[in-house]
Amino acid sequence: MKNPLHTICDIPFTLTEVLVSPDSIKFSIDGVAHVIDQKILNDFVPDSAASEKNNLYMFATEWGLLLKNKTMDTGLSKYGGKLYLREMGWLYTSGAMKNVGQIQIPFSDRKIENAVVRFNVREEDFHNSGLLGTERIENTSEAYDDVAGRFLPSLKVIESLHQSDHVVVRVQAMLGGVPIQREGMRIEVKSDAGYLNRRYGFTNHDGIAEFKFTGMLMDKGEVATLKFGYRHYSNIDSVSVTV
Score class of each variant (00 low, 15 high):
Ser160Asp: 09
Arg86Pro: 05
Leu91Val: 00
Gln181Ser: 12
Ile103Asp: 02
His232Thr: 12
His34Glu: 02
Phe202Ser: 08
Lys220Ile: 06
Glu222Asn: 14
Ile236Arg: 09
Met88Tyr: 04
Val45Ser: 05
Pro4Asp: 05
Arg110Met: 10
Pro22Met: 01
Ser21Leu: 09
Pro12Ser: 09
Asp125Asn: 13
Ser51Arg: 00
Lys39Trp: 03
Arg150Met: 11
Asn55Asp: 14
Ser28Phe: 06
Ile208Glu: 01
Ala50Arg: 06
Gln102Gly: 10
Ser77Asp: 08
Val241Asn: 05
Asn55Met: 00
Val189Gln: 13
Asn120Leu: 07
Ser51Phe: 03
Arg170Gln: 09
Leu56Thr: 01
Phe126Arg: 05
Ile137Arg: 08
Arg118Asp: 01
Leu152Gly: 08
Lys82Val: 11
Leu155Gln: 05
Phe27Gln: 11
Val18Asn: 02
Asp37Ala: 03
Ala148Thr: 04
Val147Gln: 12
Leu66Cys: 05
His205Trp: 13
Leu15Gly: 07
Gly95Tyr: 08
Lys212Gly: 03
Asp219Arg: 07
Lys26Val: 12
Tyr144Phe: 15
Thr7Pro: 12
Asp37Val: 08
Arg118Cys: 00
Lys190Met: 09
Asp109Tyr: 04
Arg118Ser: 05
Arg170Gly: 08
Phe27Trp: 08
Thr214Leu: 12
Met1Thr: 10
Leu85Arg: 13
Tyr195Met: 07
Thr225Asn: 15
Pro179His: 04
Thr203Ala: 00
